[in-house]
Simulated assay, not measured.
Amino acid sequence: MEYRLSEAQPYTPRLVTQGHLRALREVELRTRSDGRVTGLPVRQGTRVAGGETLLVLSPDALEAQLSRAEDQLTLARAELAGADDLRRRNLLSQPELLRLQASASQAAAEVAQLRHALAETRPSAPFDGVLDRLDVELGDVLQSGETFGRLLDDRRLTASAWVAQRDALALAPGQAVEVRLLNGEPLSGELVHVASRADDATRSFHVEAELDNPERLRLAGASATLAIALPQRRVHALSPPCWS
């Protein structure tokens, strides 16, 4: 009889499941002002910085209205300054001073409102990303709230998948995840979410992992295989017996 001393070795099992990828941040771009498209400073597919202007709408009469409102504010403030001096010398009643203060405040509010409305004619990128879709042309007339494109941040990706209820108990945020793409390339990340409740129809649990996409590969919406590292255990490696 032969025997061999076996020593347990550390082993990290993996749970493999199918899922899909999406950009970590993605937003449908909508106008917040009515107007005709007079400028398209960014082409579809271009990478942009947060705050960069994506679209220019006609300001119509807003610029003239703002200029007039600023003049009214200057006048109201000048009248208020003079009234303060008169009030200190008891040459102006308190109600009249309050009326002038209210007039200056109203003028300031109107200027702020018009400046905001003018800024809304030049919608900008809310974050760094790529203008993945642009749905308008020069001359198009848009209404407030109308979609004009889509911006996505693909520097990081989210991988989503579903796992069977028997496997969900072994999962927790922070576990390492390797995502293998359809072309065989791997991307590394970690588990960030494990659903607390199973889906009513499938009794499976939704999981999400986040991973870096340093080369900005076009992967949002693609399928991928997730390999989630489970808690390490010690095992013995056994080989089949050799019969002579």
Rank of each mutant, 00 (worst) to 15 (best):
E2H: 10
S6F: 11
E7C: 11
A8Q: 04
Q9I: 09
Y11R: 07
P13M: 03
G35Q: 02
L40V: 13
P41W: 06
V42S: 03
Q44T: 11
T46H: 07
V48N: 10
E52D: 13
T53D: 06
L54N: 04
L54C: 13
V56F: 07
A64Y: 12
Q65P: 09
R68E: 14
E70C: 08
E70Y: 05
E70H: 02
Q72P: 07
A76P: 01
A78V: 00
L80H: 02
A81W: 04
D85A: 14
S93R: 00
S93I: 04
E96F: 01
S105V: 11
A107Y: 04
L118G: 02
R122I: 13
F127V: 06
G129F: 06
G129N: 04
R133C: 05
R133G: 06
V136D: 07
L138M: 05
Q143W: 13
E146H: 02
G149F: 03
G149S: 03
L157G: 01
L157C: 00
A164L: 09
A164V: 08
D167G: 06
A172S: 05
A172D: 02
P173V: 06
G174A: 05
L182A: 14
G184N: 05
A195W: 09
V207N: 00
E210G: 11
E215L: 13
R216N: 15
G221E: 08
A222W: 06
T225H: 03
A227N: 08
A227C: 12
L230G: 07
P231H: 05
Q232C: 09
H236F: 07
P241F: 10
